[in-house]
Amino acid sequence: MRIQVSRQLLDRQLVDVDGRLVGKVDDVEFALDADGVPYLRTLLTGPGALGLRVGGRIGRMLVLTAERFVTDRPMVPLRIPYGLVDRVDSAVWLRIRAEQLPTSPVEEWLRRHLIGRIPGAGRAGG
């Protein structure tokens, strides 16, 4: 499968097998195989990776804001091996369910401390 990383992968929506939104492809990581040929190894998603790509003061502010919600710093991005990608069209579709990946720490924190405490948080509006 031929894919142009900058045009078709970067900044696309990551979607799990049920259609849940997992994050954006904030960055990618290459590696060298046994013959020294580079290949696409990992998709990175999360404020840590995004902040580096945005760069500058704004990028750092982005990471610092997100890090307020986590205990272990620096904040590491979520790493998704490229082998888990099922197909790439207007989104990057994964073969697995979102629950099999670690939840974003910011989402987790807000769920536990804010949104989850409001009555009716467990019911979908539809």
């Binding site: 974003s104 989402e107 949104i115 009716g120 509006g125």
Partner: peptide, 25 residues
């Protein structure tokens, strides 16, 4: 939510879209 790739929308429960509902609030 669409910039950052978060789960968004009123189809899922607010718990599952905590960042989206936080921005709303």
């Amino acid at each position: 939510a669409q910039y950052f790739g978060w789960q968004w929308g009123k189809r899922v429960s607010p718990r599952e879209a905590a960042r989206f509902h936080t921005v709303l609030l």
